[in-house]
Nucleic acid binder design. Sequence first.
DNA 1: TATGAATGAGAATTCATTCAT
DNA 2: GATGAATGAATTCTCATTCAT
Lengths: 207, 207, 207, 207
Amino acid sequence: MYSKFFNLRTEKQERIINAAVYEFANKGFDNASTNEIVKAAGISKGLLFHYFNNKKDLYLFLYDYFLEVLMEKFNPKIDGDEKDFLKKCRDVTILKLDLIKIYPDMFNFLSNAHFEESVEIKDDLDKREKKMITESFSKLYSNIDYNLFAENIDIESALKIIMWTLEGFSNQQQQKIKGKSLINLNSEEIIPEMDKYLDTLRKTLYR
Amino acid sequence: MYSKFFNLRTEKQERIINAAVYEFANKGFDNASTNEIVKAAGISKGLLFHYFNNKKDLYLFLYDYFLEVLMEKFNPKIDGDEKDFLKKCRDVTILKLDLIKIYPDMFNFLSNAHFEESVEIKDDLDKREKKMITESFSKLYSNIDYNLFAENIDIESALKIIMWTLEGFSNQQQQKIKGKSLINLNSEEIIPEMDKYLDTLRKTLYR
Amino acid sequence: MYSKFFNLRTEKQERIINAAVYEFANKGFDNASTNEIVKAAGISKGLLFHYFNNKKDLYLFLYDYFLEVLMEKFNPKIDGDEKDFLKKCRDVTILKLDLIKIYPDMFNFLSNAHFEESVEIKDDLDKREKKMITESFSKLYSNIDYNLFAENIDIESALKIIMWTLEGFSNQQQQKIKGKSLINLNSEEIIPEMDKYLDTLRKTLYR
Amino acid sequence: MYSKFFNLRTEKQERIINAAVYEFANKGFDNASTNEIVKAAGISKGLLFHYFNNKKDLYLFLYDYFLEVLMEKFNPKIDGDEKDFLKKCRDVTILKLDLIKIYPDMFNFLSNAHFEESVEIKDDLDKREKKMITESFSKLYSNIDYNLFAENIDIESALKIIMWTLEGFSNQQQQKIKGKSLINLNSEEIIPEMDKYLDTLRKTLYR
DNA sequence: TATGAATGAGAATTCATTCAT
DNA sequence: GATGAATGAATTCTCATTCAT
């Protein structure tokens, strides 16, 4: 598929990928400018379209590429033998917060992709997301020790409450980060705050 | 301010508002086309700019207009004398779900506004949001009977967990609605499902 | 012709004239905005076109109107019984410099009209100017005592040299004024400077 | 800076320059239409903006370009070792009249630039003009043999009178040319006429 | 007289994509 | 593989003028 691109020397590949993900992450699909991408990557206009047929294909290539990067990181944790759902979710969230720091554009890109409104790519993204989400969630939910939960509560509700709480927390953090230098982002402050919520959940939902 | 516009006969006002909110809701600020708006509203190019100076003003007008509509609906509930936080949140969420059905574009527009990345309007939106959110949340959090909560838990965490759960639930519903005919949207299915989560929260967080 | 307009009460006439001449003087024909004119004059759009058929007619009306004002001031001096050409020119130039202070927009308007490039009005302006200039110059040149000039020089050249010198001087002054408050414009400085040039001309061209 | 443009083959460069200077010279900055320019130059809309970022840059490019052309012609004369101010001015005026015939649009463009009122470019033009005028005039006034002037007259006035006379004469010629076919423009008629004025000046201002 | 809503051609500028070199 | 000149439809916005009220 993109063999032409992958035959480039790695340094050039990275220059192109970084330029493109930065542009898409900050401006969305429609407003990203291929002009800016080639300028930032230091290549000619024609070359970009030589490797990636068009803007749409470039976007979807990046999406698939980074999703793979992401999954390689997450899967070991999701697949792992941790049976305590709260701990499992905590591990995944910490990974997520770590990745925000390491690849800010990548994460921005992927989460913006979720809200991408451009008609041109919406359908293709939806297909990919559904597949990805279904697979990941089934893994996340598998191999859980349900005996840890309190007896009289609806397990399904409990699982969702935990996940929405962590999702809400992540969004809150991301909101706080916006505009701040990433260097100042300190997980030593974030994780204890997260644990406050997890403690409450553990106290109430677990037996 | 927009007296020129409000002097129009109501039918025309609505045609313009609907056309504009539909376009902005589906494409975001930058990619919404004023051309499409005037075409859908059945008016001339010049007229739109006769009423609203420019695209940005039109967008912010819609934002303020719908926020007012929204607040008129919400405020009575938020201000009301319900002291049970869970019940209060339930009332507000039901209103929200109602409004999604009645004004899908409006709700889409307002919630997309929250993620709007266009530099041209970001600052103005941020100002408005901060003000609105601060006011509404302070109301939502006021007049709560904290004695209802279980003794040994962190109240702040509990409040957040409740709100994130309902937020997550709303998003899930909105996700389900996408693309479906709104007529098939039945609150008789949704509210019981929501109550399932609220019951779990009540059982665990309340005394 | 413009009887409808002249039947208005004087105050309204002046408001409209002032608004229009200010706009045309500052932006030229094409870039003057009828919108700005009606706003500044405090009348409706329709009314302007009720009195003056269109933008072009309004412009030419102003031109004719102010030219008349100008001529009423100049003619007595030009027609007068002063036979010394240098003195006559001096008188006219002083009048001109006075008018710059009294009606800055009018003078600006008329002198810009001379450089107006808009195809829409060029021809009409040229006709008027040629007529006006021919008439005025013939008056200026009439009734001159040629015996005052030195014997051996070409009189025609001398007349032109005098006029071009005063034209150059006027332009130099107007250049200096630009941007300065008109209140600071002091003929007590200007006239002696002008006389310096006139003295030189008198010493050399007159006998 | 404009290397992209200068890499084009000369024929195309000229087509674009001629189309642009013609449009600007005849309509001024604001009313010149980039649409008309590309139509006249036989290029696409996008291409003009590929070479020159925007209308303003195109205008200023032309200004600088033609000023350089002009200066290359003028400087040898201005810098030259002619010490007779009248002769020096005569040489420069003849050059000017030559250039009017060869590049009528260029000259029109540059002299209109002096009266350009558009706020968008006024400041940039003023800066350039001030610099250019200061430099050129200081050269023109340098290396003059003041002993040629009559003893009892004010030298400063004399210099100005000479320059204003030649300026007035040039303008008169340019006025005459307007609309006439340039082929009929004959310097064999113009120069003797100019010399008539110069003779009068020499007779009266020189010793 | 007087209003101001309504029109639509035309303005400058952007941008993904193509293709000859 | 690599370049960048070239395209032209689409963008937002302006403006003189008309006309029903």
